[in-house]
């Protein structure tokens, strides 16, 4: 039986879960946004470099 009533300790239990969900959710969003932002920027710059013939591509 699911027990979501933490009684007198509810504020401590739900603040812990809320904080964890917010922090981990924020980490997921920021990680995806970071990867997406740099992928777009790298692809745009590499395309421009190819168009202008700006030297050979070198990848890290």
């Amino acid at each position: 039986m699911l027990d979501l009533d933490a009684g007198a300790y509810g504020v401590y239990v739900w603040m812990s879960y809320g904080l964890s969900a917010a922090a981990l959710g924020g980490l997921v969003v920021s990680s995806l946004a970071f990867a997406r932002r740099w992928r777009r920027r790298a692809e745009a710059l590499e395309a421009r470099a190819r168009e202008t013939g700006a030297g050979p591509e070198s990848r890290p």
């Binding site: 740099w38 920027r41 790298a42 710059l45 590499e46 421009r48 470099a49 070198s58 990848r59």
Partner: peptide, 8 residues
Amino acid sequence: WRRRAAAA
């Protein structure tokens, strides 16, 4: 990707 952008 960030390093590839810097290289480009």
